[in-house]
Structure formats: structure tokens, C-alpha cells
Design a protein around this nucleic acid. Structure first.
Lengths: 207, 207
DNA sequence: TAGATTGTTAATCGATTAACAATC
DNA sequence: TAGATTGTTAATCGATTAACAATC
């Protein structure tokens, strides 16, 4: 059974599907058709059905899709049926904001520690420990850590990412405005500035 | 002179071009070829030249592209040759992090105020004022505001966005995990969770 | 001039949309 | 059963890549 690669166009839409299905479930909707889904998302019913067929299809003819089942499937596909331990590396403003944000726990993402060069500058909730960055490797050796959230300034981001990789972490959620490329390490970029620049682009070019 | 629409595939690459060109300029590189650009960005030289030709072409045969000129052009295209006044609406952790972040000023984005239901909870630098959300409309009437940064919790995001639109602001940078759709208002979404979920997807599906 | 590299046209590839037989 | 709606195949559309004449 050869698992064929799913195109990134499809993958990038999956979180939006999950968000919609979760909302429908909260509203108590029992089932939806591809037509209703596409209306709500501003796409086409064809695309919805094509997207789902990548995963074998979730529906029943004449009925549509069971919302609970959709939620469950989408969570599983995205790996959200598991839990993840994270560390935050870089305790500046963004790092602190993420550490302070109450809401990852409910999604199954647990922040186990924050690392920073200057621990005394870092203000986070009392249940989260703050350690010097040099202790990261030891910490990761003793604690199973799945994801490092990289929040350092741009100029030290790459060397810090190397330390993260060296400590054995295989996934980086990158908030630094710096391209990170390390063999064997998955990187997902946030690039806040780029998002803001797309907004200003559109502001120039609207009619 | 009919200005033809540039595809969003191209537009989404523009901030990454700017980032690269800025870095090359800082390194003192005088000129680059489409081949070098594509190597550095992991794309193809063809794509680079096609992308640039959307804007009329920036280069000279046999020489390549002048880095300073590229930077300048890309900034202009993205609207970064102008400055923008912003307000932050919602003074929770993310709103505070953005207000505290030193770095928007240098890009020409000025944070003029933070609005929140409960101003006494909001800790931001002393030069930024914090006002109750109900005062936003008055404030915007008296101050030219280009962009509202929406940082409220999900459940009040839509009504807050309506207040923002009602105050006359035409662009929202949306950090709330909630779809915002208002006629005549540009919205650029950040959706941090979706980015994290793409990471966990890839963690499931790597080889 | 000779070499390098552009901007653009043509060819290919992939993603989206349309259509419809299968079936709940 | 009749109506609705799926999953999938075929058609279209758009984006990426290749090729090359133009030219610095």
C-alpha cells in the first residue's frame, strides 16, 4: 500500500477545515454537504470533495458528512490526537507571550520550560521553569521534548537552532525572522513581518 | 494603461524576496543573477524572472540585478516606502507582546495606542497610551490610523472588528483565531494555531 | 567582440472545476 | 422508490519550467 504524497495546496487547507468543523460541532450541527462546506469557506464543492478524497473520503451519498466524524478525522490527520511537549527558546516578548498564553494545554501542547541567555529578564507563569540556554541539552536529555519554539532575535536564531538540533529536537516552530535549514529537522515558519507586508501590499493595490 | 492583476502565488513570494535582498544589501553584495537568487531561495531562475517581469523587469542582460535597486523596488511594491499608524485592539498577552516589541518603528509602523475593555490589566511601554475600547471611535476620528491589530479573544473578535470598521479603519491585521469578513475592510490573518498544526501534520507524515 | 544573463514566448505540469455514474 | 449527494474521472485553467532570441 503505497501512500502517495498529498499536495501542499491541500495540506495548507486542512487547518481551516478543522476550524470550521470544530465550530459546526460546537453549534450542534450534525451533518453538512460539500456544498455547505464550500459556501462557508468560500471555495467550491468540487474542491472539498477532491480534498477529502485524498484521505479516502469521509462521506455518505445522499447524506453528506458527519460533523463529529469530520472533526475526529481532521484532528487525527493533523496529529492532534496526540500530545506534544514543547520548550520555548528565547524569553523575549514573543517567547513570554507564548508562555503566558493559556490555551495550548487544552490543545495538547505542553510548555515544559523556557530557555534564555538571561533568565532574570524572563517573566512567565510560576509553573513554568526558566533555565539558561546552555542547560537546554541536559534538559532535553532528561525530558521528552517534541517541539522547540524558537523566539530569539534574528542574529542568534541560526546558532540557537543548531543547539536545538544538537539537543535532539526534531521540530522547530520558528518565530525568528530568519530562514532556518537543518537536515533532519522540520521547521515551520511564522514570519509575522511578512504577513504585515502582505497587508500593506494589498493596501496599495486595492481598487 | 491597464494594470493587470498579479497572481497571489507571486504576491506571497514578495516578502521573501525583500528579506533576501535586504540581507544581500547588508552583506554588501552589489548585484545578483536570477540563478543566484533562485539558489538562495530554493526555487528556479525561471520563476524569479517570471515574477519580476510582472513588475516590468528589474535587470540588465549580461549583468543581472542591482541589489540596492531590487531592495528599493520591492519596498515600494510592498508599500514600505510609506509609514503607517497602527492601534492595537485587545491588550492581552499577544497585544502586549506586539506593543512591547521594539522594531516596528524602524520599519515605519507606529503604534499609536492600545485599546482594551480593562485598561488596568494592560502593561505596555510608557510612551504608548491605553484606552478603553469604547473610546476607539473618538480616537480614530482625531488621529489618522491606517491599521488595527486585532488581538482580542476569539469570542469577541467579530464584534470588535465591526467596531474597528465602524471607526473608519480600512485594514485589520488579525491575530484572533476567528474569520473576519467585512465589506470594504482588508484583513490579513495570522492564525498561529494553524501554523502549529501544519508542523504537527508534517511530524506525522515525514519518512 | 564574446560571454553572460535578461525578458518573454512556448511547453509542461499540477491544481481546480465540471460532470456524472454510483449509491445511500 | 425518488432525491440528494458522494467519490471519481475528464476538462479546464493557471502556474511553473524550459528554451531562446535580444542585448548589455
Amino acid at each position: 500500500m503505497e501512500k502517495q504524497k498529498i499536495s501542499s495546496a491541500v495540506i495548507n487547507r486542512l487547518p481551516a477545515y478543522l476550524r470550521l468543523f470544530t465550530e459546526l460541532e460546537e453549534r450542534g450541527v450534525a451533518h453538512v454537504s460539500s456544498n455547505e462546506i464550500s459556501d462557508l469557506m468560500g471555495t467550491t464543492a468540487s474542491q472539498v470533495r477532491q480534498d477529502f478524497s485524498n484521505f479516502g473520503g469521509f462521506g455518505r451519498q445522499g447524506y453528506g458528512y458527519d460533523v463529529k466524524f469530520l472533526c475526529q478525522q481532521m484532528q487525527q490527520i493533523l496529529g492532534l490526537d496526540k500530545t506534544y511537549n514543547m520548550i520555548i527558546v528565547g524569553g523575549g516578548k514573543i517567547g513570554q507571550a507564548l508562555a503566558n498564553y493559556q490555551g495550548y494545554d487544552a490543545l495538547g501542547f505542553f510548555i515544559k520550560a523556557v530557555f534564555d541567555k538571561e533568565v532574570w529578564h524572563v517573566r512567565v507563569p510560576s509553573h513554568i521553569d526558566v533555565f539558561p540556554t546552555e542547560d537546554m541539552k541536559d534538559f532535553v536529555a532528561k525530558n521528552k521534548i517534541d517541539i522547540a519554539v524558537l523566539c530569539t532575535p534574528k542574529d542568534v536564531a541560526l546558532e540557537t537552532a543548531k543547539q536545538i538540533a544538537d539537543a535532539g529536537i526534531k521540530a522547530i516552530w520558528n518565530f525568528a525572522s530568519q530562514e532556518i535549514k537543518i537536515d533532519g529537522v522540520l521547521v515551520e515558519n511564522v514570519h509575522l513581518n511578512e504577513s504585515l507586508f502582505l497587508l500593506t501590499y494589498k493596501m496599495q493595490n486595492q481598487d
